[in-house]
Design a protein around this nucleic acid. Structure first.
Lengths: 253, 253
DNA sequence: TTTGTAAATTCCGTGCAGCGGAATTAGTAT
DNA sequence: ATACTAATTCCGCTGCACGGAATTTACAAA
């Protein structure tokens, strides 16, 4: 239609495969076929290439394939412009080293939160994939809730209006003003936000805002197994350290 | 020559370009040409493709190109533990070549152990199927026991809590605190863990932890026929070599 | 053990898409 | 203005990526 820059098909396909491999610890050929819609023979050819380059690895016939160490070279040079991301990383790493749970930091991006850094790779409890670089809903995620509860009022009004005018499922809650008010009041009272509890062994989030010059600019989260401890217990154990870290990050800006 | 796996040229070239872009904040076409030795027209084609996918951005005619945000998706699933796997593999192969028994290495994954590499294919005694990429119970397997006995206390407490709250059969033992304590004490006393002896000609495991900077990060196991020798005899024959190998792997990290 | 079967892997002829040298355009220095 | 360098586009050739079909493999059931 518009610009017709030529695309090299196998390159985009290979990158798609790489992204898919990043979504689970290991992926069978069939699963890859289901998720990418690419023919299996094509997948094998792409995988052979990725393996030869060290970007992927064959695990076993049954478990399939996984990402190889060299993928780190593909993004190691990427830096966000914001200094807060760089400032926060060492604190998040330290917390993960201490408590083992994966940590993350996200900044606002329209009606969603953009995950800027995480310590998923450093935690033994990171069963799901990384949200790094992905956008997550403002009103459903711990980081989003922490941010919206503490950002300045003008910004909150703008974002809320944006969400109210949105038909997206992720913003459904924005239409229930009472519920939002209740949610935010609760967050400010306790000093932290959580994801809405999900059944099963999914990871829960517990998030606090990060300020710069008294203005909320990001939120950081600690993610833990809901089946390992209750929310109250998690707060009792980790909230103070989380808030200390957030304050330390602010101080370093 | 040796392996004749087919390689898709443009894929490896595109990844090479991506890696080069990661080396500096922005890269001009000429610089890219110098560093990759690829024709400029080819580079433009590759870059167009990467840009269309969001993996690169054009900064300006003069400054050239830089990596795009989406590169984060290419490595988000990578686990730090992969490095250990890479480092350990040659040692496991050497041990199997020497003793013939299959070796394996696993890293923690929630309340289970994830088998990351094995020499099953190199051993004549591998009767059972391949566990590569599969998860095995923490408290019933040799690798799991070795890991839980030597990992740091905060992590052990978390994992134990997780298992106590679990109804899964594989975690049944977690509810008997006394039994666990006895088990772990015995492991630390002898310096290795075993699978609970099973009747028949099943393979037994004998596992030791692998440390990094004094922290347990994985466990490696030697698997042998229980009917071929007693546990004491196996320990006498192989424990020292196992521990030496584990130490060598740690040293190489 | 043998057999069954679902999945992974290899094979191979077709055709088109990636290739790169040459021509063109844009931006910069004199 | 003019010359010069680097970026971009053009285009005919050909080599290799494509994917359906055939084969092999691993595992489980009998």
């Amino acid at each position: 239609m518009d610009e017709k820059t030529q695309q090299i098909q196998p390159v985009l396909r290979a990158l798609q495969v790489l992204e898919t491999l990043n979504l689970q610890t290991s992926t069978s050929l069939s699963a890859l076929h289901d998720q990418t819609k690419l023919p299996k023979s094509t997948l094998v050819r792409l995988l052979d290439t990725l393996i030869a380059g060290g970007y992927a690895r064959r695990v076993s016939r049954k478990a399939g394939y996984e990402v190889g160490e060299r993928v780190l070279q593909l993004s190691g040079g990427f830096r966000y412009a914001e200094k807060i991301v760089e400032a926060a990383r060492p604190f998040l790493s330290a917390l993960t080293a201490q408590h083992k749970w994966p940590m993350g930091l996200a900044t606002p991006d329209g009606d969603q939160m953009l995950v800027r850094t995480s310590t998923r790779a450093e935690s033994p409890f990171a069963t799901d994939h990384d949200f790094l670089g992905l956008r997550i809903p403002m009103l459903l995620s711990a980081v989003g809730r922490a941010y919206i509860a503490y950002c300045d009022e003008a910004e909150r009004e703008t974002v809320m209006a944006l969400m109210r005018n949105s038909k997206a499922r992720r913003n459904a809650m924005a239409h229930d003003e009472k519920a939002v008010t209740r949610l935010l009041t609760g967050i400010r009272k306790h000093g932290y936000a959580t994801t809405s509890p999900t059944p099963g062994d999914a990871l829960q989030g517990m998030a606090v805002p990060v300020f710069e010059n008294g203005k909320a600019v990001a939120a950081m989260t600690l993610r833990y197994f809901g089946s390992a401890m209750s929310e109250a217990e998690a707060a009792k154990r980790y909230l103070a350290t989380l808030q200390d870290a957030a304050a330390a990050i602010s101080a370093g800006l």
